[in-house]
Computed example of a mutant assay.
Amino acid sequence: MAKAVVTQARVFEVAQALTDQGTAPTILNVQEGIGGGSYTTVKRYLDQWREAAPKQRQPVELPEPAVARLMSLGREFWGLLDEQAGQQVEALRASTREEVAAIQTQLDQAEQAIGRLEAEREQADNHAATQEQALREAVAARAAQTERMAAAEAKAGELAARVEDLKGELERAHARQTAEREAVTAARAEAQAAAVEAARLQGELTALKKPRSSA
């Protein structure tokens, strides 16, 4: 399934819709509204929305009587605060700051852990894709090698048949050569015998041509 595309505009839209519904936008419910998305990416855009959101809201104008009443209550409240109450408030503020700092530290650590997990998941996905590609290439290489082996075996068979043919031709040529040598030897011997016979006949002819002496 395709991953949800997280954009600034989409995060702003979902965060504003949740706010209009009276629900505080959080990273989880914004992710749910988008249909997924990286934790760190959604948080970055949501932080930007929170910074820009007060500027987008129009200030609420209270009636003058209500403003006057609030100012009166404020003066009464500050009038009731004494030094001890101020110290308690300051201590509470200090304790609250410490708790907030501790929570923020835990939040930062959690975000870092989430970032590492997302990076590791992305690395694992990339590694899996690389392995899948390598497997496809290995299968293709094996198929090509099989084809080459089949072609080589066929060629080897053709060469073996050709070698057998050449051996037969060589044996036949050798036989012809042997027969030709034997024929040449026989012709040579016959020629020599004919030469000897011719010489003999020539001798006899010469003897016959000589005049006979008187008896």
Rank of each mutant, 00 (worst) to 15 (best):
Q123S: 07
Q123P: 01
A124V: 02
A124R: 15
D125A: 13
D125T: 05
N126K: 15
H127T: 08
A128P: 01
A129R: 15
T130E: 14
T130W: 07
T130Q: 15
T130Y: 06
Q131D: 10
E132S: 13
E132G: 06
E132C: 02
E132D: 14
E132F: 03
E132N: 12
Q133A: 13
Q133G: 04
Q133H: 09
A134R: 12
A134C: 01
A134V: 01
L135W: 11
L135Q: 15
L135I: 02
L135Y: 14
R136N: 08
R136Q: 13
E137I: 00
A138C: 06
V139A: 07
A140T: 05
A141W: 04
A144F: 05
T146W: 09
T146H: 08
T146D: 15
E147D: 13
E147T: 12
E147N: 11
M149L: 15
M149E: 13
A150L: 13
A150S: 08
A150I: 00
A150N: 13
A151F: 01
A151L: 10
E153Q: 14
E153M: 09
E153S: 07
A154T: 11
K155S: 08
A156S: 10
A156E: 09
E158V: 04
E158W: 03
L159W: 06
L159F: 06
L159Y: 10
A160Y: 06
A160V: 03
A160I: 01
A161W: 03
R162I: 01
R162S: 11
V163L: 14
E164D: 15
D165C: 02
D165P: 00
L166S: 02
L166F: 03
K167A: 05
K167W: 04
E169W: 07
L170R: 13
E171T: 09
E171D: 15
E171Y: 09
E171W: 06
E171R: 15
E171S: 09
E171N: 12
R172K: 12
A173P: 02
A173N: 12
H174M: 08
H174R: 15
H174F: 03
A175T: 06
R176D: 14
R176L: 09
R176C: 01
R176M: 08
Q177A: 14
Q177S: 11
Q177G: 07
T178F: 03
T178V: 09
A179T: 07
A179Y: 03
A179S: 11
A179P: 03
R181T: 10
R181G: 08
R181S: 12
E182C: 02
A183K: 12
T185W: 03
T185D: 11
R188W: 05
R188E: 15
R188F: 05
A189D: 12
